[in-house]
């Protein structure tokens, strides 16, 4: 296990977690329409990143559990927990308090994207140092989206 495989593993975990977090936040704030739709769209990018990291991992002897990134199994959001979250959001839709919860969720998402961004930066540096074009291409293609995900979660 070297720095590259560690970073790939950490990123794989981070992107997968982030996709799940976006979907959860979308469901929790179902009545905040823009949050719901944009977070759902942004989750798609992280799921793509998870797939590409897994594909790349094979070249470094990593068998990253593809599993199912949260949300992919159930794009319509009909899982029990998802339905509970959405119903709760609808029940609270006329009250101002969830606004504070939303601010907390956006802050968490922002920090999550920042963490992923740091890993992408590390991966890019390692790729440049090792003249690893495959890795550099992966980081150059995914990192800008992570930055856009972060900007998209600024309250």
């Amino acid at each position: 296990m070297n720095g590259i495989t560690l970073t790939l593993r950490a990123l794989h975990h981070g992107e997968k977690h982030f996709a799940g977090h976006l979907v959860t936040v979308a469901e929790r704030h179902r009545t905040e329409h823009e949050i719901f739709y944009v977070a759902t769209d942004l989750a798609r990018w992280s799921r793509e990143h998870v797939q590409r990291l897994a594909d790349t991992g094979h070249h470094y002897g990593l068998n990253l559990d593809l599993g199912r990134a949260p949300g992919t199994s159930d794009p319509s959001g009909t899982g029990v927990l998802a339905v509970l979250r959405e119903k709760a959001a609808e029940a609270m839709g006329r009250r101002p308090e969830p606004g504070l919860l939303l601010l907390r969720d956006l802050r968490e998402l922002h920090l999550g994207a920042t963490e992923n961004s740091l890993y992408w930066e590390m991966l890019a540096q390692a790729a440049q140092a090792g003249k690893d074009d495959r890795l550099l291409a992966l980081a150059s293609s995914c990192h800008p989206r992570t930055l856009r995900q972060r900007a998209g979660q600024t309250p």
Partner: peptide, 8 residues
Amino acid sequence: DLVTGASD
């Protein structure tokens, strides 16, 4: 941003 709507 044309996808997220986040301000530059």
